[in-house]
Nucleic acid binder design. Structure first.
Lengths: 256, 256
DNA sequence: ATCACTCTGTACGTTAACGCACATAAGTAC
DNA sequence: GTACTTATGTGCGTTAACGTACAGAGTGAT
């Protein structure tokens, strides 16, 4: 029974860990620590030093900024496709944003020291992390664009779809209040919009649970932002086998 | 006379190039090519392959996304504090955004191959580029936040200040139409807001030229976003002498 | 000096989203 | 089952920004 549960929690459920070669994976695997990531847990505060990087497998985490007046805005989300703590290897060791779990679950974490030792070998791990970071940049960029130009309905659909892509089922467990604070809009705005989507048969919901009934219907209600982000993640991280090949095209040939 | 002009165009006017050690600078310096970067020039189209990275010295470039309906939104700006073409070393070789010059001037460029050879040495150049990329991420994040929550006046002030920080004088050469398209708002909104700022004695302007009269006055009219971005650039890139020291704290000690 | 063009100013109705107030409903604890 | 808490629904009036239309002013070309 324990074995059955354990087998359902495999580091390879995180796409980045799954993309590592056997050799590198074997190197870090003894250091991977399975951790619970319950709803509301804050992985990093703005300005806090990073002790670990986290690879979610079932949890989803929001990167957001909290303003002086208390309002917040999500900058990007991270699920089993990504990693939390990029500021570690980017060199700053902290960020101005905050990371908090909004869909409870599990993940694996790695001590900062272990991550940096592998990153500094300047091999596949480094290339994978940098590629992921670029995909994350695209997500952030598109969030900025979407915040500027698109309606609450379009943004809600985008957000539901991006979240759904990180989950195994078609049910999200979260209140409208939580969604509203992620998107940085009023709770009533979500109530109204979600009501419309339900009336059109695209979703159904009850107190803290949203079920997506018509995925492609949602896609037709969202803006282009969803597909831009999705395609860029696919382009950058789907053919992970090619990462070394592509990266070494420009490899340095002469030592100094 | 030519010497005088040339001396005013020194690679070290770009902060990143200035932060390189003599050894690395000497290595790439023969490959640095001075180029004019006139208003409106497009350095990269969305999806286009990168042939060079650009280090502006007097030009300022906007990273922005153009939507299907033609509207646009700026994601970040890059001047003499930065570099264009991070997608090269991040591994994607292209981005979903576009880069166009909005303040004409000059810069230095480096062929992609030369940049990658130096980057792949995994030394100071790499650390510097990654740190800069993290600062850029902060700028993008804050743009997303600002787009969500702040007024056109606050955003205009933030934008003017960030642009001013990249210029030698207190005069910006640009039309209200251009500013509006960068911020993704109506031209009339800028006319109205700029009029207010002028009436309060913070700026003065005439057809395509804006002069900032009261810098700290502008700062008090903007949102926190300006200082967040400014401080983060300072934190990450001011003490460049420390970059190696900090980065090597986690250095790998044993070869595989 | 005149013309053409582009930039800036102003006005007006429209709209999406906001802030607030409160009602109702669905779970949870006892 | 009842009381309590939390989530959701709805109805306002308010507001910032929008879209459109057009007038005036600056600048450069001939």
């Amino acid at each position: 029974m324990l074995a059955a549960i354990t087998s359902r929690r495999d580091p390879k459920q995180n796409h980045l860990l799954a993309a590592l070669t056997g050799e590198i994976f074997d190197q870090i695997s003894p250091h991977l620590e399975l951790v619970a990531m319950p709803l509301g847990e804050v992985l990093y505060e703005s300005g806090g030093q990073l002790q670990h990087v986290y690879f979610p497998i079932s949890a989803i985490v929001s990167l957001h900024y909290i303003m002086e007046n208390g309002a917040m805005a999500e900058i990007a989300g991270v699920g089993n496709e990504g990693v939390l703590g990029i500021a570690l290897f980017m060199g700053g060791n902290t960020t101005t944003s905050r990371a908090a779990v909004y869909t409870g679950g599990h993940g694996y974490r790695l001590k900062a020291k272990v991550m940096m030792e592998e990153f500094n070998r300047a091999g596949l791990m480094m290339r994978l992390m940098l590629r992921y970071t670029q995909a994350l940049i695209t997500q952030m960029s598109q969030t900025a664009v979407c915040n500027r130009h698109h309606s609450v309905e379009q943004q809600l659909c985008r957000w539901l779809l991006l979240t759904l892509d990180r989950l195994p089922s078609n049910e999200l467990t979260m209140t409208q209040e939580l969604i509203a604070s992620m998107l940085g809009v009023r709770r009533e705005g979500i109530t109204e919009t979600a009501g419309n989507l339900q009336r059109q048969g695209l979703i159904s919901y009850r107190r803290g649970h949203i079920t997506v009934l018509d995925r492609s219907g949602l896609e037709s209600h969202t803006c282009e932002c969803y597909q831009v982000v999705r395609k860029e993640f696919h382009r950058l991280l789907s053919d992970t086998g090619d990462i070394n090949k592509i990266a070494t095209r420009y490899e340095s040939r002469q030592a100094r």
